[in-house]
């Protein structure tokens, strides 16, 4: 009897899970398989097997440059996002005048379409944009700085687009922190700076890290932003798209091989990052 109801319950659970699983298999797993198979076909053919696509890329110094660029952009912008988010969260937590506005501001880059943001950033940081006007007219620089289509510019744009994840998570972790810890440390003789260093930062580290994982993933997989603001800098996503967007006929197998490498790299990096994240608190 109970065996029977158990089976019934399991069946119901399975039926409830099945729509989500169907979506997963149909729209993710199967497409990934298609990409994988395509990456193992010789270019332009639908049969035959080869590892040539992978071999070609892994031995290509240009491709290695692309991987380095992708990692550089993702890591730098993640790091800068943390540097921005921590002081921002520390200030907003005290609820200064206008803190609601600043909180809303944090949400802007992830709710407004990224491409529009990118367009505005190009205008703002351009040689005739407000930033350069400020440098020329207020700080009396001789010539405008070139920001757009440079590596610096790309990092600034990445941070603008992806820091929100880190900031929101850091802020919510910080707000969940019992103020008694800080009070205890202060009474025990710690200066505000020491409280920050020995108590607050270690305690919100898990929050910072889990937010920065999101920033990292977004930055690593970034496509639209580098596509229109990257100029000659092409991280992996853009390089993949160029294989099918520029070459005629489109190089699907090459693109697929690159995509598989990219997916593998991201998964490996994520596992590594999670290891750090899950490490028991030191």
């Amino acid at each position: 009897m109970s065996h029977f109801t158990n089976k019934r319950q399991n069946l119901i659970t399975f039926l409830l899970l099945s729509p989500g699983l169907a979506g997963f298999f149909g729209l993710f797993f199967y497409p990934m398989l298609v990409t994988l198979f395509r990456s193992l076909r010789p270019e332009g053919q639908t049969s035959g097997w080869t590892l040539g696509n992978y071999a070609a890329f892994l031995s290509d110094p240009d491709f290695r440059g692309i991987i380095w660029l992708t990692f550089f952009l993702a890591i730098t912008s993640t790091f800068l996002s943390i540097l921005l988010s921590v002081p921002l969260a520390l200030l907003l937590r005290r609820k200064p005048v206008g803190h609601r506005l600043f909180r809303l501001t944090i949400l802007v880059p992830i709710t407004v379409p990224g491409l529009i943001g990118a367009l505005g950033l190009l205008l703002f940081w351009g040689s005739r944009g407000w930033f350069n006007l400020l440098l020329l007219q207020v700080f009396r620089l001789k010539a405008p700085l070139t920001i757009n289509y440079t590596l610096t510019g790309l990092v600034i744009f990445y941070v603008w687009h992806y820091f929100s994840y880190t900031a929101i998570t850091t802020l919510s972790t910080l707000e969940g922190l019992d103020p008694a810890f800080e009070e205890a440390a202060r009474v025990a003789g710690a200066t505000p700076w020491q409280v920050l260093r020995y108590i607050v930062i270690p305690l919100i580290m898990p929050g910072i890290l889990s937010g920065s994982v999101l920033t990292f993933m977004a930055a690593f997989g970034a496509f639209s932003i580098p596509l229109i603001t990257g100029g000659n800098y092409r991280p992996l996503s853009v390089a993949i798209y160029k294989q099918i967007g520029i070459f005629i006929p489109a190089r699907w197998s090459a693109a697929s091989a690159m995509a598989m490498i990219m997916a593998a790299l991201q998964v490996v990096f994520l596992i590594f990052y999670m290891r750090i994240l899950r490490r028991p608190m030191a």
């Binding site: 989500g20 990409t35 997989g221």
Partner: peptide
């Protein structure tokens, strides 16, 4: 649900893999 954590991570996988990877497959299908 048996192995709930694993299942949840699997379902979240599309958000961890760069979309361009499965977008290529989706386009072909």
């Amino acid at each position: 649900v048996p192995a709930k954590e694993v299942l949840t991570s699997i379902i979240l996988l599309p958000r961890m893999i760069p979309p361009i990877a499965y977008a290529l497959g989706i386009a072909q299908i």
